[in-house]
Simulated assay, not measured.
Amino acid sequence: MKYWAVVKRLDPHIEEEVTLEVEGFEFTGFAFICPYEIEVGRRYPVSIGFTILDELIIREIYEGRQELERIDEGFQYYLRGLLQVDSIDTGVVFTDEDEYFADYPDLIGKYVEMKVDRISIEFLKEDNI
């Protein structure tokens, strides 16, 4: 999904680590594409996704929450939100580009929790949003 994001923090040691605020949610992700220099406090167009390195596990939750919860200090997150056929709405919509959710048809339309290895961020050129 494409959004306008404010850069809140850049890690001085890990070049790809960036903390963004999108739609009132703050999270740290891995900027795998950044075609220009970015600065803290500025707003940029971004595309946001998720990366699964091993196995995806999705489980139903009954609280109806929408949130992003960082796991420790790494890139892993719990995404909690409403599962759709091709996305999960955690307050920020993450599109399922790799069709993981097709394996969970019984959870479509329900609130779920899934663990992702990282949130992927692509900085876009302004004419791509």
Rank of each mutant, 00 (worst) to 15 (best):
T28F: 12
C34H: 05
D11W: 05
I119G: 01
F25I: 01
L68I: 02
I57W: 05
S87K: 07
V46F: 04
I38N: 07
E26F: 02
L68P: 00
W4C: 05
I88T: 09
E16S: 12
D72R: 11
T90Q: 00
L83F: 07
L10H: 10
I48G: 02
A5K: 00
S47Q: 08
E55I: 14
D86Y: 05
E17L: 15
E73M: 06
I33T: 12
G91D: 05
V92S: 02
G24T: 02
P12V: 01
Y77S: 02
E122Q: 12
E37F: 10
G24P: 05
F94P: 03
L56A: 14
I108M: 10
V40T: 04
E37D: 13
M114V: 11
F50P: 08
G64K: 01
K8W: 01
N128W: 10
Y100P: 03
I129P: 10
D103T: 07
L124W: 04
E69K: 13
D127F: 12
H13G: 13
D98T: 14
E69W: 05
K110T: 13
G74N: 06
G24D: 00
V116N: 06
L79I: 09
D86S: 13
Q66P: 11
F50R: 06
A102C: 09
T95E: 13
T90F: 02
M1Q: 09
F27K: 04
D127S: 14
E67H: 06
F123P: 00
K2N: 08
P12I: 05
D96L: 08
F101Q: 03
M1Y: 11
K125P: 09
R43K: 15
R80L: 00
E67A: 07
V85D: 08
E67K: 09
D54K: 14
T90I: 03
K115L: 15
A102G: 13
G49E: 07
E69F: 07
L79W: 04
F75Y: 09
D127A: 10
Q84R: 11
D11G: 06
P12H: 02
E17I: 12
D96Y: 08
G109K: 15
E126V: 00
P45V: 00
L53I: 11
T19R: 05
D127R: 12
K110V: 07
E122F: 13
E37L: 09
V93Q: 08
G29E: 04
D89R: 06
H13F: 15
R43W: 14
F27C: 03
H13R: 15
K115R: 13
A5P: 01
I38K: 04
P35E: 03
G41T: 06
F94I: 03
R9E: 13
G64N: 01
Y62D: 14
Y62C: 12
R42I: 05
L10P: 14
G109N: 15
T19M: 04
L10F: 13
G91T: 04
F27P: 01
A102T: 10
K8M: 04
Y111Q: 06
P45A: 00
A102R: 11
V112C: 08
K8Y: 00
G109H: 14
S87I: 06
K8L: 06
M114T: 14
E15F: 12
V116P: 12
Q76H: 12
Y62F: 11
F123K: 01
